[in-house]
């Protein structure tokens, strides 16, 4: 298993290197001028003073050739120094780090809720394909995917914050602030998990070994969980891996709507202000998490699946 992990990890450095080149070069290639962005952020002048612009350019090392700038940035990055934001002027590492912690908490909670809701729903629906629960769940999973976050979030705010007044609409810092965002974030992964577990479990339950298990008198509960839904473990793990990065850096809508200081909103603000160091660091972090989660999940899936495990051992 360690060999497999190491082999898979080989993919990570080239991808991250390519991503670092992209996030560095792309904005500059199409004419985003970091010095102008800084000036726009720090002064209110429409036309910047050329002398000031030159000074800022030299101060930030922007007068060097692009390749040198990139290498200097990459070198600092590898030493753990992400520099300072152009706009906020805070250390980027601290800004992105604290935002990532907030988003990480949301991600973990949303994934846990999605698993708790989605997996049993899918398994029970699979007991009777075409039955009432199955059809209900089928409609529910379509709704879970089709209702976007920017529609679901205001709806929940209208009901729970405005109508019933039991939960806060926006803000951060109190456990009550977590409820609505986590609900919104969990809807999509829960729907997909339910769909996946339902499809896989229904497939397994139709197989002869399940008939044998029933014939020898195994209870319905044991048949469903030990023989049926258990086989969906690997694909649910894979699904969770896909969602880690999506929730960590991709929950922009939810974080903006609920006013949560997470990575998504930080990136969104940095993009609007053209604060390149923050955009670069945040994007690379999400890509790194995405890539690592992908690798880990794949290795985990191999470890969990006896067939693949055997194949791996035989290599």
């Amino acid at each position: 298993m360690t060999a497999l992990l190491l082999r898979r990890l080989l993919v990570v450095p080239p991808v991250l290197l390519a991503a670092s080149v992209l996030v560095f070069a792309l904005p500059r290639m199409v004419g985003v001028d970091p010095a102008r962005a800084v000036l726009r952020a720090r002064t209110a002048e429409a036309v910047p003073d050329p002398a000031t612009e030159a000074r800022v350019r030299a101060e930030l090392g922007l007068d060097a050739p692009a390749v040198e700038q990139y290498l200097r940035w990459l070198g600092a990055l590898l030493r753990g120094d992400l520099g300072h934001g152009y706009v906020s002027q805070n250390p980027v590492a601290a800004e992105v780090g604290s935002a990532a912690a907030v988003s990480g908490l949301l991600t973990v909670l949303a994934l846990a809720l999605a698993a708790v809701l989605g997996v049993p729903a899918g398994a029970y629906a699979a007991r009777r394909p075409g039955g009432r629960l199955d059809r209900f769940l089928g409609a529910g999973t379509i709704a879970g995917v089709a209702v976007p976050e920017f529609v679901l979030a205001p709806c929940l705010v209208l009901v729970f914050a405005v109508g019933l007044g039991v939960l806060p609409a926006v803000g951060w810092g109190d456990p009550a602030h977590l409820v609505l965002p986590v609900l919104v974030l969990a809807a999509y992964p829960a729907a997909l998990a339910a769909q996946l577990v339902r499809a896989e479990t229904a497939g397994v339950l139709a197989r002869p070994h399940v008939l044998l298990a029933r014939a020898k008198g195994l209870g319905e509960h044991a048949v469903l969980w030990r023989h049926g839904a258990r086989l969906a473990t690997t694909s649910v793990t894979a699904l969770a891996g896909m969602f880690v990065s999506g929730l960590l850096g991709g929950a922009v809508v939810v974080e903006v709507v609920f006013g949560i200081p997470g990575l998504g909103r930080t990136l969104h603000r940095a993009v609007e202000a053209q604060d390149l160091p923050v955009v670069q660091a945040g994007t690379l972090l999400v890509v790194a998490v995405a890539v690592l989660a992908g690798v880990l999940v794949e290795v985990l899936a191999t470890a969990l699946d006896p067939v693949q495990r055997g194949a791996e051992r035989a290599r």
Binding site: V15, L26, M29, V32, S245, V252, V271, V287
Partner: peptide
């Protein structure tokens, strides 16, 4: 496909952000 798997894990919204800065 190994690389495709890796790319598939990157959230699309992230590309939206980067593309919005760039273009």
């Amino acid at each position: 496909m190994r690389f495709v798997d890796v790319l598939a894990a990157i959230p699309v919204v992230l590309f939206g952000l980067v593309a919005a800065v760039a273009l």
